[in-house]
Amino acid sequence: MKLGFLVDLNLCMGCKGCEVACKVENEVPLSTWRLRVKYIDIGTFPDTSRSFTPLRCNHCESAPCERICPVSALHYLENGIVNVDSARCIGCAGCMMACPYGAIYMDPETNTADKCTYCAHRIESGMMPACVVVCPVQANIFGDIEDDNSNISQYIMEHQGAVQVRKPEKNTKPTHFYVGGGTQTLDPLAHERLEGYGLFNNVTHLEAIGDKHHSVLDRFLAPFESEEKYDNRSFVDFDNKDYKSELTQGDK
């Protein structure tokens, strides 16, 4: 058995239901994502179209993250899922350097590497991944790619010639496929990222990898401190001075 994913980008409408379901199901902390939907505008006004691309771990058959992990925190399950054992992770970030898809993040609460596991815990109980269940248009198709009769295998066969993976030149052999994608949507170098012009905010890069309050000294002291001091601290005392200054100006 080898589990795989296929996203039909022709069906995806960018509702971000999968993104939210993943966050809730896996308790993914703020500032990090196991699954995200990227909006890309193609063409020049007025002849433009918007495409939506869900991005998650590709669970590669030849996973660079698994190879570089020094302690096997990233490991294969029998069903082909690349799983993470956060209790073993040393936080070297080697996997983040190795993953060509930028799918791994440093969890700011545990300060260990984490990523999409195809909801391995749900699959173990016979359920589908949360993102599959929630998708209103069934754009996410999940199943056994070694079984010719599975829904995903049938879908791949029906769309022969139009099934793509991201960065095939990296030879990672992803088990995550796309239908209806193009260079502009799947290749990060094929679209411009105009810094500061996102729809909802102008934060383009994360301030820190992991918890921004987890300084070198804190890393060594953490086991001797109470949990309260560290739990969610990054998000409680966030810098809100821009908002405050806007309010002050508004009052005037």
């Binding site: 909006y39 193609i42 020049t44 930028g102 729809l199 994360l206």
Partner: peptide, 24 residues
């Protein structure tokens, strides 16, 4: 690389903040 013709020009209009330098 970015496209040089208008029809294939692509711009990210909504995405998350990405990690910066990991190994510093």
């Amino acid at each position: 690389m970015e496209s040089t013709i208008h029809a294939t020009q692509a711009v990210v209009s909504l995405d998350v903040a990405l990690p910066g330098i990991i190994w510093g």
